[in-house]
Design a protein around this nucleic acid. Structure first.
Lengths: 336, 336
DNA sequence: GCAAGTTTCGAAACCGCTTTCTTAAATTTT
DNA sequence: AAAATTTAAGAAAGCGGTTTCGAAACTTGC
């Protein structure tokens, strides 16, 4: 490993001069600088992050909290997409993206301890168990943090405009003549699921439609099976089937459509179905799925921008800020 | 920030003794050790990764190379799943997972330079552009590396048994009476795609069936649209439609089914379709998809195990080792 | 009871880099 | 031409740990 001392020796100057040259300081003459850079290059010099970080107390790294406890992990396309655009944005600025963990060697650490251990500049909370006892400590530590799709106390969050999306979906269905619009809500431990359920009720009430609890079911999860099971539940709850279903995710909606078909209902003729997410596949199912599209790229980059602003102290640490990202309503066959 | 010096002062001993106590060295008496640990805990001591790494030359971190150049990034469920299980395995061992990038601050680095800069213990190559000029340098550097689903020179790789999977699919279709089995190959820049195409030809030849180039199309990508387009291409190439299609991915297969339906073909009555991957959705399309299931969890953990073994020098660095992970053939409606 | 061997602990060097403070040289000012 | 200022470079301390080596204290064996 070649160090700045090796370079200093080769050039015939002090290591401090080399350091300054490498950092493009103006305390060193242009001639010297060029000479040093040339030698550094020739010798294959690569700086050492640990030494640098130790000396400067800056890490240029961002921790990502991606807890798999709730089994919504990396495999969930929404979060994967968000992480991907987040990563692209901050990496372009020269930051490293690293996963926050709870262990180092054989030792167990809390999230906060790990962040201090690695001296991360900021934390991006993607998914996390809100009941995790270590979470509170982290969110109150003063470390710059943003989250997405979440309603964590004390943390600014970037999230789709669930109210707007829900309203567009429900109003569209009503305009199509639907009278009995059911809602397959997402698991209520998810913040977005709660928002969508609230928005569903709210929109109905604003339209002077009575909310019928028998037309509401909570899915166990955001996936297909949960959608299928939800239909069974719905059939139990309500003797007369709804004429439209608003589902909290595309996966749920697709599962629901499969179940509806199995029970002899035609989609969209007997029951119209609207999903949420606009996963790639939703355009290719049969019938293709009408849905509320979430802009995961935008969510990721907005989160990144905000976090960077916090790190650079360009933004105030306002607690509990919720930044809304607009959604788009996409009409396809499942509601024709 | 509380350091070992602070603890030393509080306890009334030397910093070296604190260090030893924290590292559970047997050079310090049990009594002292307990005393020091107690004080450390009370003072809220957290070690400093940079300082430790600088002194020990160990980082306990693994770099993940996830290049989005080929637009198969994190959003691709197979790689997301593999990364997730890899991450879980190595984190449990106390390693940190961090993404390899090409920039640090304003400075651009090669992959290898970055790995040296961060002093990662090993590298996990998930997706990468094989033509990237920086790649060769990395794979020949001597840093422990494993890859998945790839045929990189000089790097051990973990990959599904594409030959076995293909054979099961083709033989099953032949047993069902298919005479004209087409193949929608994956993009041939992908190693797995090449393997599956070769296996397809090989299986046909072994069964004394003539390979008909008009029944082979290469998809641009692994996604739905590519599958749809492939069908158009297939129709152009061959006046008579195949009676079965073996697709290189589930997404391609689903896209193909949509296109087939649009052209008036019934699946599976007119054309049977087999996919590859067993994505979650494949059980919920209509018809549900017969497919070759890849065990992403196993691929991820196998990769992790092998990399850890390389890091610990328990495994030889054998170049070009390919470790096969068995696949499973799952029969559903698209071939009934 | 004393030599030899073990434990336990601390001093100090070191890991590679940054940064402050000095000093010497070069340049400008008067 | 001397004084004042600016510029360029180096010495040294520090970041927070680990590790080697030597000394002191304690055991053991005879």
């Amino acid at each position: 490993m070649v160090t700045i001392y090796d370079i200093a020796k080769a050039v015939g100057c002090a290591s401090s001069t080399v350091s300054k040259a490498l950092n493009n300081s103006k305390e060193v003459s242009e001639k010297r600088k060029q000479e040093i850079l040339a030698v550094a290059k020739k010798m294959g010099y690569v700086p050492n992050a640990s030494a640098r970080s130790l000396a400067t107390k800056n890490s240029w790294s961002i921790g990502v909290l991606f807890s798999e406890d709730l089994n919504i992990g990396l495999e969930h396309h929404l979060f994967a997409g968000i992480l991907q655009s987040f990563k692209a944005y901050v990496e372009d600025l020269g930051y490293e993206v690293t996963f926050v963990t709870k262990k180092v060697g054989v030792q167990s650490l809390t999230y906060l301890e790990w962040c201090k251990y690695k001296n991360v500049d900021g934390v991006f909370i993607v998914t996390v168990d809100r009941d995790d006892e270590n979470l509170n400590e982290l969110t109150h530590s003063g470390i710059p943090i943003v989250s997405v799709d979440n309603g964590l106390l004390n943390v600014p969050t970037i999230i789709s405009d669930n109210l707007q999306g829900t309203r567009m979906a429900i109003e569209y269905l009503m305009n199509k003549g639907a009278n009995r619009i059911a809602h397959i809500a997402g698991p209520q431990r998810s913040f977005a699921a709660v928002e969508r359920l609230d928005a569903y009720k709210d929109t109905l009430i604003k339209a002077s439609v009575q909310v019928d609890d028998n037309l509401i079911v909570e899915a166990d999860n955001y996936d297909f099976m949960s959608g299928k099971r939800a239909i069974d539940q719905l059939l139990k709850q309500s003797e007369k089937m709804a004429d439209a279903i608003y589902a909290a995710s595309d996966d749920i909606a697709i599962g629901a459509i499969v179940a509806l078909k199995e029970h002899g209902y035609k989609v969209p003729e007997d029951v119209a179905v609207v999903g949420f997410d606009n996963i790639e596949l939703s355009g290719y199912t049969s019938p293709s799925l009408t849905t509320v599209s979430q802009q995961k790229d935008l969510i990721g980059t907005e989160a990144a921008k905000h976090l960077i602003a916090l790190i650079n102290k360009e933004a105030q640490i306002e607690r509990d800020v919720i930044k809304r990202v607009p959604v788009e309503f996409i009409i396809r066959e499942s509601t024709k």
